[in-house]
């Protein structure tokens, strides 16, 4: 996983609430067995059918920070939603609330999801709509979002922050605990089912 410390880039205002993972990437794109190349599926229906959709506006081309409405990433557990955002070029998503599974997936995969008050999101929306060239900085080191006229702290637990900043693979970390896992397995109830 790529390390995340500080990212600065232009931002896209996505003024919709409840953007579920079916909207982020429709199911038809989930049939692939590869891990890359999901950018074509990102918001596919809205990009194809709505010329006014924000990602279709040239002024937001190349933006890397998504500023979304509340309850972004609800619904299906598809991690493809994270991959599609990353493959398209997004490094961070800011919103007042996220779907739990989506949030977990994003922080596993190095896409930084930042929770900010809706009032701050509104100010950021207004700012990037007024000036699409304005840059937003997401600083994981300082746990802070900065933009012209806006400086807001955000919370993220120390462990997740450390893992993201080091770009660590969770599985390798857990495999260091193999002895504890072995020990737990000795204590499991004898009636628990096996699939054989």
């Amino acid at each position: 996983m790529e390390k995340f410390t500080v990212h600065t880039g232009r931002a896209v205002p996505l003024r919709h609430s409840n953007v579920d993972t079916d909207q982020i990437i429709p199911a038809v794109y989930l049939k692939r067995v590869s891990r890359t190349g999901f950018e074509d599926g990102l918001f596919a229906a809205w990009r194809a059918n709505d010329p006014e959709f924000v990602l279709n506006k040239p002024e937001y081309t190349g933006a890397t920070v998504l500023i979304a409405g509340p309850d972004f990433g609800t619904g299906s557990s598809r991690e493809h939603a994270v991959w599609a955002l990353q493959d398209y070029g997004f490094k961070a998503v800011l919103a007042s609330r996220f779907g739990d599974i989506f949030r977990g997936n994003s922080l596993k995969g190095g896409l930084l999801t930042v929770v900010l008050a809706q009032e701050v999101i509104e100010r950021l929306w207004a700012m990037v709509e007024a000036d699409p060239t304005a840059e937003v900085t997401v600083d994981l080191q300082e746990r802070e979002v900065r933009a012209p006229g806006i400086t807001e702290p955000f919370e993220l637990d120390d462990y997740t922050r450390w893992r993201l900043m080091e770009g660590l693979d969770d599985i390798a970390l857990t495999l260091r605990q193999t002895e504890a896992i072995d020990g737990y397995e000795q204590r499991r109830k004898s009636w628990l089912p096996v699939t054989r």
Binding site: I101, G104, K108, G109, I171, L173, Q177
Partner: peptide
């Protein structure tokens, strides 16, 4: 019982465990 993403699927396959918040 909870739904997980593909990274976690790999984690469970490899370790039969998950770090959970």
């Amino acid at each position: 019982a909870f739904g997980i993403g593909t990274s976690q699927v790999e984690h469970v396959l490899a370790t039969q465990t998950l770090p959970m918040a």
